[in-house]
Amino acid sequence: MMLTPPPGDYRAYLFDCDGTVADSMPLHFTAWEQALSEWGCEFPEDLFYAWGGRPVADIIASLNERNGLDMPVAQVARRREELFQEMLPRLQAVPETLEHIEEAHGRLPFAVVSGSTRESVTASLRTIGLLDRFDTLVCAGDYGRPKPDPEGFLLAARLLGIAPEHCLVFEDTEMGIQAATAAGMNSVRIPQRRTPVDQGTR
């Protein structure tokens, strides 16, 4: 059943990637667990989902502070990305979001606004066969202030040439919803999925 957006004159759709377009959060969590275990660092699952939408470097820095560690940010980030890439063949699209993409593609411009790296976002979208649906990608490094700051969404709107009030955001995290609201955009909340990795996707 298609999720119903709030009423509005929408001229562009902006999507988070992980957990919104790509059902990748369980894979990302497993990659984080494996990468961090090499440094004796724990990352509780509830905290992982609470921090959804934050850039990878931000998360590692916060885990260092939280656990009194000094993990090298760039090295841990690379290792986590390597592990995630190895699991990509298991990746699928989120059905609720895919319905909206298929319904509006060719009628409205689309953008992805993600706290993940461009490499990771591109690989995920290519794996699920949706990379060519998006007119622009706004990823970590393209903007300075992560969600819940609205900067990423506002940048995507400017790149598409659409006023913020005419953009509809699809998000799975509270920080993402807050960022959309701060940008003056309506939003659709995608239910979070915690599919066990060893069972694959649905």
Rank of each mutant, 00 (worst) to 15 (best):
E86N: 09
A31T: 10
V76L: 14
M185T: 13
R107N: 14
G19D: 03
S124R: 03
E33P: 09
P191R: 05
V197M: 02
F15Y: 06
L83E: 02
G184T: 15
P191T: 15
M87G: 10
S116D: 11
M25Y: 05
F153Y: 15
E45Q: 13
T30R: 01
E174T: 14
G176S: 05
I177R: 03
L131S: 08
P164F: 06
T4N: 00
M2A: 12
R79I: 15
P5Q: 04
R80G: 03
R126T: 14
V121W: 04
F48G: 04
T20I: 09
L130A: 14
D198S: 12
G19P: 12
P146L: 02
L3D: 05
S124W: 06
L137D: 07
A77N: 05
R145V: 09
G200I: 11
R78I: 13
L63S: 08
G68C: 06
V113E: 07
L69K: 12
V56M: 00
P95Q: 11
G144F: 02
Q85P: 08
Q34I: 13
A179E: 04
Y143K: 01
M1Y: 07
V121A: 02
G184I: 15
G8Y: 03
E171I: 02
L88S: 06
S124A: 13
T195R: 01
R107T: 15
S124P: 05
E42T: 15
L125S: 01
H105W: 15
P196D: 03
A180R: 00
W32A: 11
R80C: 09
L131C: 04
H166L: 13
A123P: 14
P95C: 10
L91R: 02
L131V: 15
P26R: 09
A77I: 07
E171C: 06
H105T: 13
A183F: 11
R202G: 14
D46W: 06
E151L: 04
E96C: 11
Q34R: 12
P148C: 04
Y49H: 12
R202P: 10
V73G: 02
E86G: 08
A31K: 05
S124H: 07
R79Q: 09
R118P: 09
A77Y: 03
E96V: 15
S24P: 12
I60D: 01
V56P: 01
L131Q: 04
F110E: 13
P44I: 10
M175A: 15
L131T: 13
A157S: 07
V169M: 02
T20A: 01
Q85N: 05
V197K: 00
A163I: 12
E151C: 02
G115H: 07
T195I: 11
Q75C: 07
F110A: 12
T195Y: 03
L88F: 06
W51I: 06
W51C: 09
F153A: 01
L108P: 10
H100Q: 14
R194P: 07
I59A: 01
L125W: 02
C41I: 15
Q85E: 08
L159V: 10
C167E: 07
G141S: 09
P55G: 05
M1P: 11
E165I: 08
T4Y: 00
S116V: 15
E99D: 12
T30P: 00
D198T: 14
P150I: 07
V188W: 00
Y49Q: 03
R158I: 08
G141I: 13
R133H: 14
R145D: 11
P95V: 15
I177N: 00
E42M: 08
E86D: 09
G200F: 06
E45C: 08
P5D: 00
P164A: 05
S116H: 11
A123E: 04
M87S: 13
